[in-house]
């Protein structure tokens, strides 16, 4: 898998609206346009794909629910709201990223506040998250009704996901932060295995459910916030990648978590290439590409049998 991942990384320089021949690549590798537009894009694809794949695996375990995706807790709604507020105010892209990140954190804070005030089981927490997301979408809809069409177009693009708005520095920073989180999570993956057993079994085996769930929701929210604030809402990856990972490496999160991150990065990189190549020079949003090829692929795998929701290693 690893050589293929590196091949995709380098292919990202060659494909897209500005196609480059191999001979040109060597000469232009350090030129600013290439560095800014394509190197940063590849970095962002890897960081975002890892974050979404990891957050999906994490949340499916925390709620012992195969239908969880990184956006189920409504945190991303805060991110989109933050971004569109930034766009309405005419802020630069960096401030829009910051606004989106703050929006995510604000919604995470609200969710955590709801959790601290009452004893909540997994389904109750999920319900809180879904309601929070709907509330955010409601506000966004009101904004879209009164905003100018260009603003609405910008918001729609944000909601579909776009990897073209980060600098190399941001891409590297994001990748570093995501990698640090992944290392921390990998060392505590046994908690994810316990949570996947369900509330009762995890609690009877000695896990402090309340503390563990709050901790993991913070971590998942941080991964989602980093991803949404830099690349918008990219669907599909976080929902489906953990299922593919479980089908390949089994159900233990010692393997599922890092593999979901790796697979998420590869799939997002691949989708980004396709999005830039299919209708070149027009670029299709990476979120749309992910869904268009990913959904039929997963339906096929589920239908044929190698992938089973939350049940792996049945081979």
């Amino acid at each position: 898998m690893r050589p293929y991942r590196f091949a995709l990384f380098f292919m990202s320089f060659l494909l897209g609206a500005l196609a480059l021949a191999m001979s040109e690549l060597h000469g232009r590798i350090f030129q600013s346009s290439l560095t800014e537009l394509q190197f940063s894009r590849a970095l962002l694809a890897i960081a975002t794909g890892s974050a979404l794949g990891g957050a999906g695996a994490l949340l499916q375990a925390v709620f012992s629910n195969p239908l969880c995706d990184p956006y189920i807790l409504g945190v991303s709604s805060g991110g989109v709201l933050g971004a569109v507020i930034g766009m309405s105010l005419g802020l630069s892209i960096h401030w829009i990223h910051a606004g989106s990140f703050l929006g995510c954190l604000l919604f995470t804070g609200i969710l955590q506040g709801l959790l601290s005030s009452r004893r909540s089981d997994a389904s109750q927490v999920l319900f809180f998250g879904i309601l929070l997301g709907l509330f955010g979408s409601g506000i966004l809809t009101i904004w879209m009704a009164v905003a100018d069409p260009m603003g609405v177009y910008g918001a729609l693009l944000w909601m579909l996901g776009d990897l073209g708005h980060a600098s190399v520095g941001q891409g590297l920073f994001l990748l570093m932060v995501v990698l640090l989180i992944l290392v921390w999570v990998s060392r505590r993956s046994h908690e994810l295995d316990l949570l996947m057993l369900g509330d009762f079994q995890a609690s009877s085996m000695g896990l402090d459910l309340r503390k563990a769930r709050r901790r993991w929701i913070w971590i998942a929210s941080l991964l989602v916030s980093l991803s949404v604030s830099h690349a918008g809402m990219i669907g599909f990856v976080g929902l489906t990648v953990p299922h593919l990972a479980r089908a390949i490496v089994g159900a233990s999160h010692r393997k599922v978590f890092p593999f979901s991150c790796l697979l998420g990065a590869v799939l997002l990189l691949l989708s980004d290439h396709l999005g830039r190549w299919i209708l070149s020079p027009v670029e299709l949003p990476v979120g749309v590409i992910c869904t268009l090829w990913g959904a039929p692929a997963l339906i096929f795998l589920l239908w044929k049998g190698p992938v089973r929701l939350m049940r792996a290693s049945m081979r």
């Binding site: 996947m196 479980r246 089973r308 290693s313």
Partner: peptide, 12 residues
Amino acid sequence: LHLQTGLTVGDF
């Protein structure tokens, strides 16, 4: 054990 996971006996 009402497990929906494919955890192996050893992992569990």
